[in-house]
Design a binder for these strands. Structure first.
Length: 575
RNA sequence: CGGGGUGUAGCGUAGUUUGGCUAGCGCACCUGAUUUGGGAUCAGGAGGUCGCAGGUUCAAAUCCUGUCACCCCGACCA
């Protein structure tokens, strides 16, 4: 490829709307162009990067016996009605109608399509297990796109669906996919990846993992234990909040104290001279049908709303407390709570005593609350948000650290949710009808590309790993009006290509600064500079984008040296 | 959907408070000359319904009303 024919412009100034580096560099470098909120076109360099990532994924999916298929982008609404998701999924599923008024949806995930594809084929146990996957455009009408390719509405995704005759078989295959994912990230040159236990969200199912690229610009919070290796999305992280109560606290009587005008935990605890850990806080939510849910939790902890929603199996929002609700905002406590609403207790209160809490009476709180004694029959569940420094839920010893991460892949054990809903069965060896169990496995291709850029760049541009770089070699000919230099550069270009290397060739008659800046923005790992100055010494310069290699090679050996360097860099990313 | 902010040429911006604009500047683009190892210099040139629609006014980028889009924080997110 000749650079002077490459469509797309590179420019010096950082676009004002770009907040994260990878976004800014990929716009500045002529990789992509904004079309609409969360929708981008890709220029050739990005398209090539995408294609290489896709190929790595394809090879690794094939290696675990995946079969590449292709599902439609536009699916009939009726298929989504079969699984129940036509109604259950929110407005991120883009719904539309065709000319006959029939409902259609734009595919945002393809469990339904996968079941539909293999429903008949999978009628006999002899055909299991199998996995189908596709690499294709998805559309999700995200409420808020951000960060360039990090969070978009239209994106390329690899999604895979496996079918099994037993949970054990699924679990064994799940582990294989886990390892395949690790290989994909390693080959793509992304280093800082961790797999975390995750919340399964709308996909349903039980066990799932998210592969997270750890970066300060990530949008998810991760809870990591530096000692035992516990890793979880904060949404799913169990919170261990021991609340040991001394005998003295347990024997203290429940007493009502006046707390005029004090409605917050801070005010009440300050007034009573108690630490926030010695308070019982009420947090009020409302379900879609307006019914109230009162959740009691230790005063120093926050609610993890994902846990709450999973527990209730219903969405909730922060409540608007009306006068006729029977709830007295600021004075709500577990004792003498009259309102007929659902009451939940966080595990942090289990066995606690000597607490203060609202007295369900304006301007009064209780002290000496003993959960066991005063709230008989309370059931405790985990609703609290894990905090930096909390004890690890797994080893119980070491302090949890919180990091930010970008989800670049996930794997789910789906179970029979879709096969059951959509009536997919097989006959086992004894002729009994059974439900296949499913797994699904996704990787966002563009997000992975952006993550690599985010991890590997400098002030001048991306530093692409050779496995996914748009080209392997960037050949610059300075002073292309010099006959000798131009002739050698031309011949080297042909020679490198003939040896099977991917070369971008810049022979524009421009100042060196412009050429080097463009080369930096394209981030090609191996750079060759041919110039009259070097030609005088009979050599050319060979260097790497990350500056780890910088050498001069005699013109006669240039092609050999470049080839060796390309092989060496490629070898470092081969498994 | 809530809070905050911004819309001026492909990109980055000045001007908006206090109406006087025929809208200025840098990069990029075109022509010519001189240059050529880290985003050159000089000269000339093209490119704008100042987000959109109403309104006020002799006069609107500027004031008013409405609307749309985008960005940030939050909510949401296989």
């Amino acid at each position: 490829m000749k650079l002077d024919k490459l469509v797309g412009e590179r420019f010096k100034e950082r676009p004002a709307d770009c907040v994260i580096d990878s976004h800014a560099l990929m716009v500045r470098g002529g990789y992509m162009k904004y079309v609409a909120n969360g929708i981008y076109s890709q220029y050739m360099p990005l398209k090539r990067i995408m294609r290489k990532i896709e190929q790595i994924i394809r090879e690794e999916m094939d290696a675990v016996d995946g079969q590449e298929v292709l599902f439609p982008v536009v699916l009939p609404g009726s298929l989504w009605e079969e699984s129940g998701r036509y109604e259950s999924v929110g407005s991120e599923l883009l719904r539309m109608k065709d000319r006959n008024g029939s409902p259609l949806v734009l595919g945002m995930t393809h469990e339904e399509a996968a079941v539909q594809l293999v429903r008949e084929y999978g009628g006999s146990y002899t055909r299991y297990p199998f996995m189908v996957y596709q690499i294709q455009t998805k559309f999700r009408d995200e409420p808020r796109a951000r960060g360039g390719l990090i969070r978009v509405r239209e994106f390329t995704m690899k999604d895979a669906y496996s079918f099994h005759t037993s949970q054990e078989d699924l679990e064994a295959y799940y582990k294989e996919c886990f390892r395949a994912y690790e290989r994909v990230y390693k080959r793509a040159g992304l280093k800082n990846v961790v797999a975390v236990a995750s919340d399964s969200g709308m996909m349903g199912g039980n066990i799932s993992h998210e592969f997270m690229f750890v970066t300060p610009v990530g949008e998810d919070s991760l809870a990591l234990c530096p000692q035992c290796g516990y890793r979880a999305n904060m949404e799913a992280a169990e919170c261990v909040a021991p609340a040991p109560a001394s005998d003295g606290e347990k024997s203290r009587a429940l007493g009502k104290v006046p707390t005029p005008g004090m409605q917050t935990i801070e005010e009440v605890c300050n007034f009573l001279n108690l630490p926030k850990e010695k308070s019982c806080k009420a947090v009020i939510y409302q379900k879609d049908d307006e019914r109230y849910v009162v959740l009691f939790i230790r005063g120093d902890l926050e609610i993890n709303e994902t846990k709450l929603i999973n527990f209730l199996k219903a969405t909730v929002r922060t409540a608007v407390i009306t006068e006729d609700s029977g709830l007295l905002a600021g004075y709500i406590g577990p004792v003498n709570l009259k309102a007929g609403c659902e009451v939940l207790y966080d595990r942090s209160l289990q066995g606690a005593a000597g607490l203060c809490c609202g007295a369900n009476e304006v301007n009064y709180h209780f002290t000496g609350l003993n959960m066991e004694r005063d709230c008989p029959g309370a059931v405790f569940n985990d609703f609290a948000k894990i905090r930096e420094g909390d004890a690890c839920p797994q080893c119980g010893e070491h302090a949890i650290t919180l990091e930010r991460g970008i989800e670049i892949g996930n794997i789910f054990q789906l179970g029979t949710k879709y096969t059951k809903a959509m009536g997919m069965h097989y006959l086992d060896s004894e002729g009994n009808q059974q439900l296949p169990v499913m797994g699904c496995y996704g990787i966002g291709v563009g997000r992975l590309a952006a993550s690599v850029c985010e991890e590997s760049h400098d002030n001048f541009g991306p530093i692409w790993p050779i496995s996914i770089a748009p080209w392997q070699v960037h050949l610059c000919c300075l002073r292309a009006d010099d006959g000798e230099a131009k002739a050698f550069a031309d011949s080297l270009y042909k020679d490198l290509q003939a040896r099977g290397m991917e070369v971008i060739y810049d022979d524009r008659l421009l100042s060196a600064g412009v050429m080097f800046s463009d080369a930096d923005l394209l981030g090609v790992p191996v750079r060759v500079v041919v110039s009259p100055r070097n030609m005088k010494d009979g050599c050319c310069e060979i260097s790497t984008r990350d500056k780890s290699v910088s050498m001069k090679a005699p013109v006669a050996e240039a092609a050999d040296e470049v080839e060796a360097l390309v092989k060496k860099l490629s070898g470092e990313l081969t498994i």
